[in-house]
Amino acid sequence: MMPMMRTNNWIPTVFNDLFDADFMPKANATAPAINVKESDKAYTVELAAPGMKKEDFNVHINDEGNLIIKMESKQEHKEEDKNTRYLRREFSYSKYEQTLILPDDVNKEQISAKVENGVLTVDLPKLVEEKVKVSRQIDIA
């Protein structure tokens, strides 16, 4: 007589069928896209943040002179169907932090930021180097 092995294979299948369905949204663990541009007068950092508001961002310079960009958004939606007494809740939470080491030629006192059309734009103006003219008479010995 052969021993019989009992397994409950239906449990994982039920969960796989439930959570692997196309209608179930999957978590997206990707970071926002960042563009960095340079011109003669400034650097510009652009961070894609669709649906985010100005209040969702914190942009500052730390003690080491690095630019810190933090983004955090919490949303809760409730919908109640009066006919079936069903309560549906959706939670959305996203948090992102990026540290950028700034070049030495950035004027840290003039940095500005704005949010427009789902894009955070941080302007990093360059220091204006005053070119000192070194003109002088040289004595001939």
Rank of each mutant, 00 (worst) to 15 (best):
M2C: 11
D104Y: 01
K126G: 00
V128D: 12
A31Y: 10
H77Q: 15
R6W: 14
K108Y: 01
E97V: 14
K131W: 08
T84Y: 09
N16H: 03
H60R: 15
K133G: 07
D105S: 07
S94K: 04
D20E: 15
P25Y: 04
E90S: 10
D40R: 06
E109P: 02
H77M: 13
L100D: 01
E38T: 09
R6F: 14
K131N: 06
D40E: 15
K70F: 00
L102M: 03
K26V: 11
V106S: 04
N16I: 03
K37I: 09
E116M: 13
N83I: 04
D123A: 11
V134A: 11
S92A: 06
V119N: 01
I68N: 04
V122A: 02
M24S: 06
E72L: 10
S94C: 09
N28P: 00
L120R: 00
L47A: 03
F91A: 02
G65A: 09
E72N: 13
D105M: 03
M2I: 07
K82R: 08
E80R: 08
K53E: 10
D139L: 09
M24N: 07
I140A: 04
Q98E: 12
S39N: 07
I138R: 12
P12M: 06
A33E: 12
H77G: 12
D17V: 10
T30L: 08
A29P: 06
V128Q: 11
H60K: 12
V14T: 11
E116K: 15
E64T: 05
T121N: 07
V106W: 01
A29M: 14
I11V: 14
L127T: 10
L67V: 04
M24V: 11
Q75S: 14
G51Y: 07
Y96E: 05
A31I: 07
Y93C: 05
